[in-house]
Design a protein around this nucleic acid. Structure first.
Length: 456
RNA sequence: CGGGGCGUAGCGCAGCCUGGUAGCGCAUCUGGUUUGGGACCAGAGGGUCGCAAGUUCGAAUCUUGCCGCCCCGACCA
């Protein structure tokens, strides 16, 4: 994309114009590292129990995560749409869940005394949409998703956005003629999820999950291993090391072998754990750990289509309820999970795919003509190279700038100051390893631009 | 919802037991000295002590009620 430098000053992301309220001290009510770092790095601000404002830095990362989720959904053939957060209670009365859902659902009454609710999920609404427009087997299959805020009035919100009451979720819904066809949609999501989490630097292990009254084997939770995880999990260690299939899969072909490869080995959460089966896993491969559930997929057949009368006419001219599945990713929870997996004592270490900025430019003496000039030309060059840099042009002292850059996890830091410039030197620091390179400004910018320090 | 804990300046805390002028560190602002890994000196601003009632000459402090938040448990992306 062409960048218009005539307006460079306004498009330049200067820290002095950004909104980054970093905290030096850790707020006492944050218990886990991701919550602490999100508060310290000025990413979120709690507004009420389990309800957060997303400040610019947090919002930027959240959008990067959403974008990856979206790209992988699209790649797998899902079609994006957007349903509202507020729903009518009538739809939920049709499915019977208005009463079943209980206290977790936030119920609202509008000015006409109509019962409304803040959606905790969208099965009823999507089923209503489907039945409105689709009547024939020729309309199938359909795979639709949205990324929308949900509200679940949790008994006990905790761990920051990890278990918030308001949270951002990607939910996909599949509609198929029968179970066999639904299984293909299920497998698509299974593979898409492996790729999605892998792109964010997460190794997520699919684990058999409870299918409830539906039964069958078509429900999996995707678990990221982390010490602070809420679930106890047991699996074959080979699964953790197994890479993602990558984008070059034949989405219309048979995905079952890919799925089987990952479901053949033992993996279960606490509630599905079978100690005898686990004992069959070779001892050195037996892994018991804690995990964070970042995704959940399941096939639920006609659970909603039957009561809500979402029927399609089959080729034999008979009407039958459509077979459905739903597939959720906790987008806001993913952000916390990524921090849990990637941090050190100084702060966040973002995988580059979700880093809020691709690089930082630290002007150690803002106001010094040589430093200012060098920083500005570095900014232009790094922007041109697509690195989306953040320029720290503040008057803060160097120590504070280094600490902030590490805290918010800028993957590469271009350190420019008058002392180095006298010898035509600037410093490139790689956040993940802490290694530094002294280079001329031209070399530093060129090598950053060609991603020469990647995987450092 | 059961059990535990906490609400005092933006953040982290002391003061409460034993009632008597509301404090400390960080942050903020001003001036100065500094300036390459969270500087220093001097000064300044900022608080309905969660809310309400009660006891008392007098309540951050004692009593009661309410609200909010955090932690542990059963449920969940």
């Amino acid at each position: 994309m062409e960048i218009d430098h005539s307006n460079a000053d306004l498009t330049c992301m200067r820290l002095s114009r950004f909104f980054l309220p970093v905290l030096k001290e850790t707020p006492s009510d944050a218990q886990i590292i991701s919550h602490q770092l999100m508060l310290r790095a000025g990413m979120v601000r709690q507004q009420s129990a389990g309800i957060y404002s997303w400040l610019p830095l947090g919002w930027k990362v959240l959008q990067k995560i959403s974008d990856i989720v979206r790209e992988e959904q699209n790649r797998a053939g899902a079609v994006e749409m957007l349903m509202p957060t507020i729903q009518s209670a009538d739809l939920w009365r049709e499915s019977g869940r208005y009463d079943d859902y209980g206290q977790e659902m936030l119920r609202i009454t509008d000015r006409h005394e109509r019962d409304m609710l803040f959606g905790p999920t969208n099965e009823e609404m999507i089923t209503d949409l489907f039945r409105t427009y689709c009547r024939s087997y020729k309309d199938l299959p359909k795979l639709l998703y949205h990324i929308q805020w949900k509200f679940r009035d949790e008994i006990r919100p905790r761990f920051g956005v990890m278990r918030g009451r308001e949270f951002l979720m990607k939910d996909t819904y599949s509609f198929d003629l029968d179970e066999a066809a639904a299984r293909h949609a299920y497998n698509r999501m299974f593979v898409a999820y492996l790729n999605t989490f892998s792109r964010m630097g997460l190794q997520a292990v699919p684990m058999r999950a409870d299918t409830g009254p539906i039964g069958g084997d078509l429900s999996h939770e995707f678990i990221v291993l982390a010490e602070t995880g809420e679930s106890e999990v047991f699996c074959n260690a080979d699964l953790v090391e197994m890479g993602a299939p990558g984008p070059d899969v034949d989405w219309d072909g048979d995905l079952q072998p890919l799925v089987d490869q990952r479901t053949a080995l033992y993996a279960a959460t606490e509630e599905m754990h079978d100690a005898d089966a686990f004992a069959q896993v070779p001892e050195d491969r037996r892994l018991s750990a804690r995990g964070i559930e970042v995704g959940h997929i399941f096939y639920f057949g006609t659970k909603y289509s039957e009561p809500m009368k979402a029927y399609v006419t089959h080729p034999d001219q008979k009407d039958r309820p459509v077979h459905m599945g739903s597939y959720g990713v906790g987008v806001s929870r993913l952000l916390a999970a990524i921090i849990e997996a990637h941090h050190d004592d100084k702060g966040c270490i973002w995988p580059e795919s979700v880093a809020p900025f691709g690089a930082g430019i630290l002007n150690l003496r803002a106001g010094d003509e040589a430093a200012d000039t060098a920083c500005e030309s570095a900014y232009a060059a790094l922007s041109e190279a697509g690195l989306d840099p953040l320029y720290d042009d503040t008057k803060e002292r160097p120590g504070g700038k280094f600490a902030t850059a590490d805290l918010i996890g800028l993957p590469y830091q271009l350190v420019i100051g008058p002392r180095g410039l006298k010898e035509n030197k600037v410093e490139v620091k790689v956040r993940r390893t802490g290694e530094t390179h002294e280079l001329s400004p031209e070399d530093a910018v060129a090598r950053l631009g060609e991603r020469a320090f990647s995987n450092g």
